[in-house]
Structures are given as structure tokens and as C-alpha cells.
Design a protein around this nucleic acid. Structure first.
Length: 256
DNA sequence: ATGGTGGTCCAACCA
């Protein structure tokens, strides 16, 4: 089973990329973030034509998450338990025996902004929520744009980035707290190329110079970590015409 | 280089 995550930064603009990528990769599940499309406008039929069901939680202009799947989603949830959020950033659902949360963590803007405090509060609520989820669902997978680079090796220039939003100690600590409920960064369970990044700023020729961050993650429960046979980042779509600034991350799992 | 580019939706915000 192949599961992928991709922040598309507008599904309307990126629909041709998503379709082309789905046709090539044929994943069982693709989690999308920053769809920026309201539910009435979601391209359900376009994905149906490719053999995918769509589950989505969107709003106009910002945010929005969607999960495409070969099998129909069961029990979709659009909220972090007990956390009021007007921003559509999470989508939980069950696919067969897999429990999947597709998340778009707040960016945080800068460490001295209100948005940074919102991000830290959001992550604390997510931790509590995922602890409860894990108690109910041993086959739990949490994927999406975490907007946190877990370690310095996930950052092209750790000195230049030190202390800034996306790499700050408080954010990394919040991520470690989430992992501590029983989730592991599946990407790092395998040998990976050096300088593996999932996001490249549109500015300053970052992709051409391969200057990025690894902020798109797949966290798996113990049971799913055992079933995971590989994780890779596919940077190819970043070189396509009018790309997203993020690229897909793909994990493979055995069927048992 | 306190900039740069891109998306939403048309002024300003977000990333």
C-alpha cells in the first residue's frame, strides 16, 4: 500500500499536477494540504474519473485539507478534539484498517508573532488529540505539512535558520511531545540521501540551488512503523511548470 | 539584498 502527502498550495492551480502525479504513482491514498478551495468547488468528479474518492474540509482562500483514496473513507472528523479552530487544517478518517490524520500545521510566521503562539497551542492540542486517537487506533498514521523541520539535518542552512520559525526549539519540542505519544518519523527509519528536503521557497532560486527544509512528515504508530517498507521524497514535481513550493512524500506499507 | 516569489482575489494577507 502506497500513501502520500503533498501540500499543493492551491488545488485549483495545481490540479493538472495532482492528476498527472496520481496517474503515474497510483497511490492508495493521497493527503493534500493548502487546497484553498471551498467544499462546494472541490473537484470531486475529476478525481472520481481517476478512481479516487474525495474527503475534504476547505474554506475560501486559505488552508484546506483533502484526502483522496481508492477505498471510501469511514468516520471522517474535521476537528482536533476539544480545540476550537475556524481554520480548516485537519481531516481524520479510517480507510480499511488504517486510521489516517491529514494535517496542515499553522506556519507561525515568526517567533515573536501571535501566529507563533497559535501554532504552539495548536500543536499542544494535537498531541492530546493524537494520544486519544492512538488509544483507539493502533494502526495510526499522521501525515501532512508540519511546518517544523525536526532536526538540523532537515535544514539546508542550520546556522542561518537557527532560532527562526519552522526550526525553533519550542516548535521542535512540541513535535517531540507529539512523537512521545507513540509516533515515529517514518522517513528517518530508512537510509536517505543527504540534503533531503520537501519544501523549497519560491524566492531566491531556492529549488535550483536545492536549498530547502524537510517539513512535510509522516508519523506512524509502532504497528505502522513495523509495516513501513520505505519512505521517499519525490522532488520531480517541483521542477514542473508553475509548481507548488512543496513536493510529495511517499510511504510504502506491507499489507498485513 | 530586512529582499526575493506565488496564491487568493483586488487590498492586503498569508506562506
Amino acid at each position: 500500500m502506497k500513501v502520500a502527502t503533498w501540500n499543493v498550495n492551491s488545488l485549483r492551480v495545481r490540479l493538472p499536477h495532482v492528476i498527472a502525479w496520481l496517474q503515474r504513482e497510483q497511490p492508495e491514498i493521497l493527503a493534500l494540504q493548502e487546497t484553498k478551495v471551498k467544499d462546494d468547488d472541490f473537484p470531486v468528479r475529476e478525481f472520481e474519473a481517476l478512481g479516487y474518492f474525495s474527503t475534504f474540509s476547505g474554506q475560501p482562500g486559505y488552508n484546506g485539507v483533502a484526502t483522496l483514496s481508492r477505498v471510501r473513507a469511514q468516520g471522517a472528523s474535521l476537528e482536533i478534539l476539544g480545540f476550537e479552530d475556524l481554520q480548516r487544517r485537519v481531516l481524520g478518517a479510517t480507510f480499511g484498517n488504517l486510521r489516517l490524520w491529514n494535517i496542515y500545521v499553522p506556519n507561525g510566521q515568526s517567533v515573536d508573532s501571535d501566529k507563533y503562539q497559535y501554532k504552539l497551542g495548536w500543536l499542544a492540542a494535537l498531541r492530546t488529540h493524537l494520544a486519544a486517537e492512538l488509544a483507539q487506533h493502533p494502526r495510526l498514521l499522521v501525515v501532512g505539512d508540519f511546518n517544523i523541520a525536526p532536526e538540523d539535518r532537515d535544514v539546508h542552512d542550520p546556522i542561518g535558520w537557527q532560532g527562526r520559525v519552522l526550526v525553533s526549539p519550542a516548535e521542535r519540542s512540541a513535535l517531540a511531545q507529539i512523537a512521545s505519544v507513540g509516533l515515529t518519523d517514518l522517513f528517518r527509519r530508512f537510509d536517505q540521501p543527504e540534503r533531503s528536503y520537501s519544501w523549497f521557497d519560491y524566492r531566491a532560486g531556492s529549488f535550483r540551488r536545492k536549498l530547502g527544509l524537510r517539513i512535510d512528515l509522516m508519523l506512524g504508530s509502532e504497528e505502522l512503523a513495523r509495516a513501513c517498507t520505505g519512505v521517499r521524497i519525490d522532488i520531480e514535481p517541483r521542477g514542473w511548470e508553475r509548481p507548488s513550493d512543496h513536493v510529495p512524500v511517499v510511504a510504502e506499507f506491507t499489507n498485513n
